[in-house]
Design a protein around this nucleic acid. Structure first.
Lengths: 237, 237
DNA sequence: GCATATTTGTCCGTATGTATA
DNA sequence: CTATACATACGGACAAATATG
């Protein structure tokens, strides 16, 4: 149980937000299972999702599985090709750029109108967790904390929809993270920069925070694309 | 064919964007049909979407209809309650506020980094169309042009995902528009303000454009909520 | 290019569980 | 509490499209 030291489950925070404790149907549960498999890399981009094999494997009917596929297709984690089936989505380079453009849009705009001394507890908590996870060498938790920090930034906008959009963006990005062979360098170097951004916001230096945020995202995008090109030989599609 | 005078079909531009001319399945076609029915008010918020009746009415199977329901639920035009069925969504007041918060976020951020003298043809075209439609008294076309103008603003961000998010936001807003009894005043008064925003952008006065945009959205939200309270007595749910 | 096997798309019938009158 | 209506999930069927030899 080494995970207890690094605090709460920021992995869970990144999941699609069921507002109430809604009762969960079979299709939704299957979708969540497959979603985790995609995100943790067990089902890498390009994988064919054969209906027959998977439905037997999960012990659910084909119709129910197809429903789960639809849910994941809407989250852009699966790709549906008519009469050919569904595949784990593989993001082209340009799509990665689009995701970072949208991140820049959402994150910088979310902190735009912020007054001085805002409530930043929800923003700082995942950052602290990530910093502690880095000391413990738990790189997966570092990654989750990093993403949760940026998700919390968007939450400062006060729009639940903006948060949900951001959650979707981050889930798609995990599609890329999952094929990166060296997860450590991916997030570790950015923790101090997150700290800088947070302190800028706390002190009311919004333009400075936005500038640092933009720079952060540009650097992260560049590094990610470099690792992507290096690790991905056979680009699906 | 009076629609020809007001130019191209900006109604169509607001539709969910199929990137390629993808072959269209039965479910998607059914979804598009139902979507139009919801937006034009034939299926007002709160309407129960009984699987059996609708599948027979459209001549498709229940499984296929359920797929169409999923598509529309994801666009938040339908609401899914486990074991109870799907309903045409009715937006609570707070959700309207959330939509406008996200609009403010997207629209002001989209024009943020814009240099002087950007290419604004795609932005001006729907505005011109709306202005002409106003002269012709075609208020539905005025509304579509108004929304298409703001969608085009977001497109200036260069992110196709941002555009898609915005498209979803506008589709949801139409859910509210559809219950407003007096569509004329809803959009007509805002055309000159759109013009002002456009000219600010053209001249490179970005902060002024953002300020006017924010003011526009606040006023529009206020007016919409007032009309909403007036027209909606029996809140669905 | 052709014939065959596999897989998906669509639909049906039914059994079960859930909500509501 | 009972009865009814409906959604959920399953299994099977067949046509159509695709993949394979």
């Amino acid at each position: 149980m080494e995970h207890d030291v690094v605090g709460p489950d920021y992995e869970g925070l990144l999941r699609a937000g069921r507002s109430t404790i809604a009762r969960t149907g079979t299709a939704e549960r299957a979708a969540e299972y497959l979603r985790d498999r995609i995100i943790d890399g067990a089902l890498p981009p390009g994988t064919r999702m054969a209906e027959d094999a998977i439905s037997k494997g999960l012990g659910i009917s084909r119709n129910t599985l197809r429903e789960a596929f639809r849910l994941l297709s809407h989250q852009r984690l699966l790709e549906h090709e008519l009469n050919r089936g569904v595949f784990v989505r593989s993001l082209p380079r340009e799509e990665v750029g689009d995701l970072y453009t949208l991140r820049r849009l959402l994150e910088t705009a979310a902190i735009d109108g912020l007054g001085p001394d805002p409530d930043l507890t929800d923003v700082e908590a995942p950052l602290l967790a990530a910093e502690r996870a880095a000391e413990a060498g738990d790189w997966a938790a570092v990654g989750s904390g990093d993403l949760a920090f940026h998700l919390a930034l968007v939450a400062l906008s006060g729009s639940t929809r903006a948060v949900e959009v951001m959650r979707g963006v981050l889930a798609e990005l995990r599609l890329v993270f999952s094929v990166i062979t060296e997860p450590r360098r991916l997030h570790e170097a950015y923790l101090p920069r997150n700290r800088v951004i947070l302190e800028f916001i706390r002190s009311g230096a919004i333009p400075e925070a936005q500038a640092e945020l933009s720079a952060y995202l540009e650097d992260a995008q560049r590094q990610l694309l470099a690792a992507y090109d290096f690790d991905v030989e056979s680009g699906g599609r």
